[in-house]
Amino acid sequence: MMENKSNGNGQKEWQPKIVAFFCNWCTYTAADSAGVSRIKYAPNIRIIRVMCSGRVDPQFILDSFAKGADGVLIGGCHPGDCHYQEGNYKCLRRFRLLQRVINSFGIEPERLRLEWISASEADRVRVVVNEMVNQVKALGPLALPQKYEELKKEIEHHPVTSEIKEE
C-alpha cells in the first residue's frame, strides 16, 4: 500500500514521487554540484545511484512503477562521454523499448524520462527535475499498487476469471 500522503499540516496537494537512477560519473555528480551551488529544485525526486546508466535494468523501472512511483527518471552521460565508453547507448536502446512496453501497460510514456546530464550541468538537474515533476503532476497519480489491489479483488470475486485461471 502506498503511504498516506496526508500530513500534520492538514490539506496538502498531491505530490508525485519520482524515482531517479543517476549514473555515478555524470548525473549523480551534477546533482551533487547542484547542491554545492545551492540550486533549488522540487523535492519529489528520490535518487538511486548506479555506476552507469547501462546498469539500469528494465526491471528496476517496471518495479518502481509497480511499487508506486509516479515517474522514473534516468540520468546518464552525454552520448560519447560515457565513463564506460558506451553504457549510455545500451541504456538508450532499453529506454526506447521500455517506453513502448509501458505504454502498452497503460502507463503514459511521459512518466519515463531519460536525460543526458554531464557533471558540469548542475542547473540542468534543476530544469529536468522540475519539468518532470510538473509533467507528472499534470498526469496525476499512477498508483499502480492500489490498482493491482482493486484488480485482485475483482479477480477473486469473478467466477469466470477463476475458471480461466484453472484451465
Binding site: M51, G54, R55, D57, H83, G87, K90
Partner: peptide, 9 residues
C-alpha cells in the same frame, strides 16, 4: 570495470 551493463542485460 564495474559498469554493470551486462548485469542489466
Amino acid at each position: 570495470k564495474g559498469c554493470g551493463t551486462c548485469v542489466a542485460a
